[in-house]
Amino acid sequence: MNLTGGIVLYAVLWFLTLFVLLPIGEVSQDEAGEVVPGTPRGAPHKPRLGRKMLWSTAISAILWAVCAYVILSGIVTREDVMGWDQLIR
């Protein structure tokens, strides 16, 4: 894995974990009883995006470290991945 591949892998993992974390713990404006005029009733009351971005950074760093270890240590090689299609055939 080169530098570009590592950065791309981290970015993909970061956005994936962010999208998984976004709906966790959300309360709609309707459920909170404070609907701001001009917004839908189902809009988040207090989304706390900063906290979720920090959690996403921490979780994706751990996932990236595991993936980098698997790739760089040779546990899974390109030849192994190329042979996975034989399992389906």
Rank of each mutant, 00 (worst) to 15 (best):
Tyr10His: 15
Ile24Met: 11
Glu34His: 08
Leu3Pro: 04
Met82His: 04
Ser60Glu: 08
Phe19Gln: 09
Ile75Pro: 00
Gly6Ala: 09
Val76Ser: 06
Val81Phe: 07
Met82Trp: 05
Pro44Asp: 05
Asp85Tyr: 13
Arg41Val: 15
Val8Gln: 02
Met82Val: 05
Arg41Gly: 06
Gly50Leu: 03
Leu16Gln: 00
Leu54Tyr: 02
Thr77Gln: 02
Arg78Asp: 05
Val12Met: 03
Leu87Lys: 01
Glu31Asp: 14
Lys46Met: 11
Pro23Val: 07
Leu21Asp: 08
Phe19Leu: 11
Val12His: 04
Thr57Asp: 03
Ser73Thr: 14
Gly83Leu: 06
Phe15Leu: 12
Leu3Asp: 09
Val12Gln: 02
Gly74Ser: 06
His45Gln: 01
Leu9Ala: 15
Trp14Lys: 00
Gly5Met: 04
Ile75Cys: 08
Gly74Pro: 10
Asp80Thr: 09
Gly42Gln: 10
Arg41Phe: 10
Ala11His: 06
His45Ser: 10
Glu34Leu: 06
Gln29Pro: 07
Gly83Pro: 01
Tyr10Arg: 14
Val66Arg: 00
Leu22Met: 12
Gly33Tyr: 04
Asp85Lys: 14
Trp64Leu: 13
Gly74Trp: 11
Trp55Ser: 05
Arg48Tyr: 14
Ala65Thr: 10
Asp30Trp: 05
Ser73Leu: 14
Leu16Asp: 01
Asp80Gly: 12
Cys67Gln: 01
Gly74Asn: 11
Gly83Ala: 07
Cys67Phe: 07
Val81Ile: 15
Asn2Ala: 07
Ile88Ser: 09
His45Glu: 03
Cys67Asp: 10
Gly42Arg: 02
Gly5Phe: 03
Gln29Gly: 09
Lys46Glu: 15
Asn2Cys: 01
Gly6Glu: 08
Met1Lys: 12
Val70Phe: 11
Pro40Met: 07
Trp14Asp: 02
His45Lys: 01
Ala65Ser: 12
Thr77His: 07
Leu13Thr: 07
Leu18Tyr: 12
Val12Ala: 14
Ile62Phe: 13
Val81Thr: 01
Thr4Lys: 11
Leu21Gln: 01
Ile59Leu: 12
Pro37Phe: 00
Glu34Ile: 04
Leu16Ser: 08
Ala43Phe: 03
Gln86Ile: 04
Val27Lys: 12
Leu63Ala: 03
Leu3Val: 09
Lys52Phe: 10
Val8Trp: 04
Lys46Asn: 14
Leu13Gly: 05
Glu31Ala: 10
Asp80Asn: 10
Leu87Tyr: 15
Asp30Cys: 08
Trp14His: 10
Gly83Lys: 05
Leu49His: 07
Ile59Val: 15
Val81Asp: 00
Ser28Ile: 06
Val36Ser: 02
Thr17Pro: 05
Ile75Gly: 06
Ala58Phe: 13
Tyr10Met: 14
Ser60Asn: 04
Leu13His: 02
Ala43Glu: 07
Pro47Thr: 05
Leu63Asp: 00
Gln29Met: 15
Val12Gly: 08
Glu79Val: 06
Ser28Val: 03
Ile59Tyr: 01
Val81Arg: 05
Gln29Arg: 02
Gln29Ala: 12
Val27Pro: 05
Ile71Gln: 05
Val8Tyr: 02
Glu34Tyr: 00
Gln86Phe: 13
Trp14Tyr: 15
Arg48Asp: 15
Gln86Ala: 11
Ile7Ser: 12
His45Trp: 09
Asp30His: 01
Arg48Lys: 14
Ile75Ser: 10
